[in-house]
């Protein structure tokens, strides 16, 4: 294989897959940390949306994608604090609280876009010079590396894992379960916020209404498929990333006959594969033992 062929494969297959997997990987790692601390996290979708929105807004304002990206993460943390308050302080049902979080994010983003840009649902386009080129890919790689090391080898990782696996054991070892769960929730908020940031300032050039379109749930599916472990979770994200890249490539392509396959059918692909893979993956349950349990 000569160099140009290699570059061709890299640019037509490897890079697109990595690009579309980026938000999934950020969000899934966030989801993994949170679920490992014992909190069911179906609110990734909402964190992603506010991350995407405030990431786009601040990139426009500061003309600096890095600052915008950071603010996307912070926006995710803010919303996750609200979720944590409901779940940990007021002991709301985790599923219900996360659903409320998602609906809140879905509603609050067009509300502000109306005020700031007089457009229900989208921000102004981000000028090309303020957009990311490849930086989120490197940041993603760094996040995977740090997550894996922290998860397996640090005191923090061990204690957080026990908060989800056997909270009583952690408590009787003199460590606060509540703190670990707050930390898990905030990590999920930050990483899912970054995931949203990649959507609006890396993969496209503005925020549009509901732009996460279920990626938060696909990320959660990747956590489950990855058995709540960092590297397998990332691999599961790449699998879903491949289906999405294929989906994008297949749009408008004539597969058989003279007409291209209707785009709606092609767009079903990632969701369909998510369902099939999850249905096939359900055998033994690998979920943290204390997941969703409140004293």
């Amino acid at each position: 294989m000569d160099e140009s062929q290699f570059e061709h494969i890299l640019s037509t297959w490897v890079l697109p897959v990595l690009r579309v997997s980026t938000p999934l990987i950020f969000a899934a790692l966030g989801g993994m940390w949170c679920e490992r601390s014992g909190i069911v996290q179906i609110g990734l979708e909402g964190f992603m949306l506010v991350g995407a929105f405030f990431g786009a807004v601040s990139t426009l304002y500061f003309s600096n994608p890095y600052l915008g990206f950071l603010i996307a993460g912070i926006a995710g943390v803010m919303l996750s604090l609200l979720f944590g308050l409901g779940v940990l302080k007021f002991r709301a049902n985790q599923i219900v609280a996360a659903t409320a979080t998602n609906l809140f994010a879905l509603g609050v983003t067009p509300f502000f876009s109306k005020i700031w840009y007089d457009s229900t649902g989208s921000t102004a386009p981000i000028p090309t010079e303020s957009q990311f080129k490849v930086a989120p890919l490197y940041l993603m790689g760094l996040t995977v590396l740090i997550s894996t090391i922290l998860f397996h080898y640090s005191k923090f990782g061990l204690r957080l894992r026990f908060a989800g696996e056997h909270p009583k054991a952690l408590e009787s070892a003199g460590v606060s379960v509540l703190n670990k769960r707050w930390q898990g929730i905030m990590i999920s908020g930050f990483l899912a916020g970054l995931a949203g940031g990649t959507l609006s300032i890396y993969l496209s050039s503005s925020f549009i209404r509901n732009m996460s379109s279920g990626r938060g749930f696909i990320a959660l599916a990747a956590v489950i498929l990855g058995k709540w472990k960092p590297i397998p979770t990332v691999l599961a994200c790449l699998l879903f990333g491949i289906t999405e890249a294929v989906q994008i490539r297949l749009q408008g392509v004539v597969l058989w006959g003279s007409e291209p396959v209707p785009v709606q059918w092609i767009q079903i692909l990632p969701y369909l594969i998510t369902i099939v893979v999850l249905a096939g993956a359900v055998g033994r349950s690998y979920a943290p033992k204390g997941l969703g349990q409140v004293e």
Binding site: R161, A169, A173, V175, K289
Partner: peptide, 17 residues
Amino acid sequence: MLAENESVLSNIILGQE
């Protein structure tokens, strides 16, 4: 008070790693 999926070592040193 042991987490079944974790190693013996992790279970023992938890809190005083």
